[in-house]
Simulated scan of single mutants.
Amino acid sequence: MTDGDFRREVGQFFESEYPEELRHLPHRPTFSEVEHWHRKLHAKGWVAPAWPAEYGGMGLSAAKLLIFYEEQQRWGVNRGRDMGVQMVGPLIIKFGTQTQRTIGCRGS
């Protein structure tokens, strides 16, 4: 998929699915406020965009990851409390055992 096509797909999803009342909040919402959104992202496979697909991520290139984050910002989509996705998961993927990768990253 081209970068332009990807940007359109992501933008259309955020525009149509992210609740208007949560856009461009001046604070970081609690998980309970955005849990329904997190579940939508998870169902679509978009919770961990930079993770390899085999560990439940989107396997995005650096360019597409930047597009994903740019579209989040443009549509006022809160990234949520994603320290585990951004910091812990990549460490497990890189340095963990196969069992840790499977259990820690896929939850299975």
Rank of each mutant, 00 (worst) to 15 (best):
M87S: 14
F95A: 15
R101E: 11
Q98S: 14
M1C: 03
E70W: 08
K44W: 02
V10L: 03
F6L: 01
K44S: 00
P52R: 08
W46L: 04
Y69V: 07
Y69Q: 05
G4K: 03
S16D: 11
G59Y: 06
P90M: 04
H42E: 15
K94P: 01
W37F: 14
K64W: 03
M1H: 04
R7Y: 01
Q73D: 15
R8E: 09
F13N: 02
R8I: 05
R7I: 06
G80H: 14
F6T: 04
R7K: 13
R101W: 07
F14L: 00
V47W: 03
M83F: 13
V34I: 11
G56P: 06
E71R: 08
S108A: 14
M83K: 14
M87R: 12
I92G: 07
V47N: 10
S32L: 11
Q73T: 14
S16Q: 12
R28K: 13
G104C: 11
G107S: 13
E33Q: 08
C105Q: 06
D82I: 03
L66G: 03
R28G: 13
S32N: 12
W75Q: 10
Y18Q: 05
G76Q: 01
R8W: 05
P26M: 04
A50P: 07
D5L: 01
E17S: 09
S61P: 06
R39S: 11
W51Y: 14
K94D: 13
T102R: 13
N78V: 03
V77G: 02
H36L: 00
G104W: 08
E54D: 15
P19I: 02
G45F: 10
H36C: 00
L65M: 10
H38Q: 07
M58T: 06
E54I: 10
S61W: 09
D3Q: 06
M87Q: 11
F31H: 09
L25S: 05
P49R: 03
Q12D: 15
K64F: 08
M1L: 01
Q12K: 12
G57W: 07
A43M: 09
L41N: 01
M1K: 05
G104K: 08
P90H: 07
K44C: 11
E54K: 12
T102N: 13
G96C: 07
W46I: 06
